[in-house]
Design a protein around this nucleic acid. Structure first.
Lengths: 219, 219, 219, 219
DNA sequence: CATGAATGAGAATTCATTCAT
DNA sequence: TATGAATGAATTCTCATTCAT
């Protein structure tokens, strides 16, 4: 990858392009994500990032104060993308929305090079670096809050039982998602996909739902 | 942390403590585990390990051929400790044994600095180094096999339903355990313990069990 | 040696001298040669080289992939210089050219710190490192081929007897040159110079020449 | 080489043997020579030496003050052996003795694993370590003196011409021998043996001899 | 603004030497 | 006396960061 022949050209090309700061930052973040995807966090060196972004190593420091900042910014971008389904599926009934998001998650994780799933897992797994670690945890907490609010909405609307505990359900949802992450991480592909992992989620949801799944397994 | 003079004053006072090789090795492994716990795998540098073990950097290489070997040895020790409950609980009915192991896992994970839980998670999450990563995956596969065999035994004995799928149950057990790992890793302590995480496991087991839990939640 | 402040005061005074890559590379090679001269190959450590080049240790690795590459590059530079006489003397009659080269070799070796003679010998004698050793041997073979081709030319032109064996003469030339190398290496300066070592070569050449030496000893 | 199975036994055996200091020293020196032969000077580590000698690393320091001393002692032993032919051939006519020694040298160098030739060359080539280097040079000077005295004797006896210069002849002899050393060192085996290298010596001697070679090359 | 040459602290590893046993 | 466990300075190499251009 990144062979010279083509690179030398494109690099020269890129060099000339004077981008608006915000857009250049965007591009660098994309580069970070792709480097993290390919190599993992600890191997996401600044020079790899610079090369992938088509800029000099010094340039990175015009947009970020440190490597940690770069990674944190990339993590945010990944979080953004990973959580988008929760908002995109906004018009559905809350419980159905959760089911839909889960299905998407399973599908994304099962698919080879599943968009932002890989860097997502890389961040979760590779964040032993202090600081990044906290950022990842914060990310999970944010996700947690989003999920919990949807469960609460679902209970309010009556699509899950009144005695179901949204916190418990949220934890269960996370457990389901983490399970898929771990499988991706360790290459246990046999568990991924709707047949196995997705079942876990439906398990949890069916137990709390007031009526059985409409579209999911069930049939 | 691990400043001199606080606990093992003999270490810094006495120069050149001569130990039986086996014991020194043991101590170094303990040191590795504690460094991994505190700093994660990538930050478990040989000099940190040496300092924690109270030996010179060269000494490590009398006992291990490389840093990777050190980490692998520590991983083995941790695996050993983490999986011990499966063997200690040997005399119980298989399903009950799974419950018991689960309870212990939850308890261990919940306890602050719960023995080997932290390094266990650090190894799972932080093993970006090739070789160590494979060792970790192998460890998971080994664990997987142990769990599955117990589920199969349980089905043979009739304590879980004949139509329950041991593979599915095994995955569910792992998902439960990974959930706790993630919480430990990210400091989401609010989910740990019998009240929340343990419930997930009992969820799964109750569904497959032919009779309700004897000792677990239930009452 | 190479203390700061003595000759190139600018080096220590000015921090971060920025050079064109080619020139910096050149300077580093010079530094390697001088370190090898002074300390021999095994003692030509990267930190000594860095210090001699007036750069940080990391800088070396911007120009060379490894210490071995540094040494190989330096060896090439030395070879280049050592063999230059063969090409500079190109217009002479072949046999006379050989005599001329020999005289230059003797002169170079005899002169205190005779340019590239000392590092040349250091490389030949001190290349215990695999890879470098092969590079040195290749160097000798290359030199051998150059010398042999000139002897063949000389025979074709009739300046050495038709029954003289170019291979034998080449070996004899090498033996002559190695003799000087050994003397330099071991500080046996009493043998160096035209009086003694050079005589050896003329011995060999006179025996094969069709007419006596024009300029050399003879008189 | 040095596999455990057998070694463990022999080691235990050797351990018990309490040798007279002088003899143990002797054995260690043998071990050094064999390690140098096999691995070269820079790779002749103290632990390799200790292992080869069947003693603990600490023991070496009861007999030698430092690694350098060990190597120097071994070099002396090798010198001793290499120069023995000069004395063994004592009854012959001096010039014939030189021829005989030369022949032996050529034969030894040409033969695979030629007794003490290999460590000899290893010392000459590998002695970039300061101190050892001087020792090697001294060795060459000693050899030089021995050779020169024989040439002087030969001149006194009239077997070489009165106007021949013993110093010159000595240098020529050394050049001949070094040539063979270099060939061994660089694996240029094609030059070794009586056909090529030995001819060089006979060249020199014939020129100084009052009568042609008796036994040597024939013509 | 952007660059990329230069940096230097720190990583893993080796090995001659010491010293408690 | 002999041992071998322990040492720590030194080695090669990496990489986040800086700063002259």
């Amino acid at each position: 990858m990144r062979e010279e022949g083509t690179e030398e050209l494109s690099e020269k090309t890129v060099k000339r392009v004077r981008l608006a700061p915000a857009e250049r930052r965007e591009r660098i973040i994309d580069a970070i994500v792709s480097v993290v995807s390919e190599h993992g966090v600890p191997e996401a060196t600044t020079s790899r990032i610079a090369e992938a972004a088509g800029v000099g190593p010094g340039t990175l420091y015009r947009y970020f104060g440190s490597r940690e900042e770069m990674l944190t910014a990339a993590l945010d971008a990944v979080y953004e993308r990973i959580m988008r389904p929760w908002y995109d599926a906004g018009e559905l009934d809350p419980l159905e929305r959760i089911r839909e998001v889960g299905r998407r998650h399973s599908r994304i994780m099962a698919s080879e090079e599943g968009g932002f799933a890989v860097p997502w897992v890389q961040f979760i797994a590779g964040a032993s670096e202090v600081g990044l670690r906290d950022a990842v945890a914060e990310t999970q907490r944010r996700a947690y809050r989003v999920v919990q609010s949807v469960f609460e909405e679902a209970r309010a609307q009556g699509s899950i039982r009144a005695d179901a505990d949204p916190v418990e359900l949220t934890y269960q949802f996370l457990v389901y998602a983490w399970g898929e992450n771990m499988c991706v991480l360790m290459g246990l592909n046999e568990f991924l996909g709707e047949e196995r992992s997705m079942k876990v989620l439906e398990h949890f949801l069916d137990q709390a739902a007031t009526k059985p799944s409409e579209s999911g397994r069930g049939q």
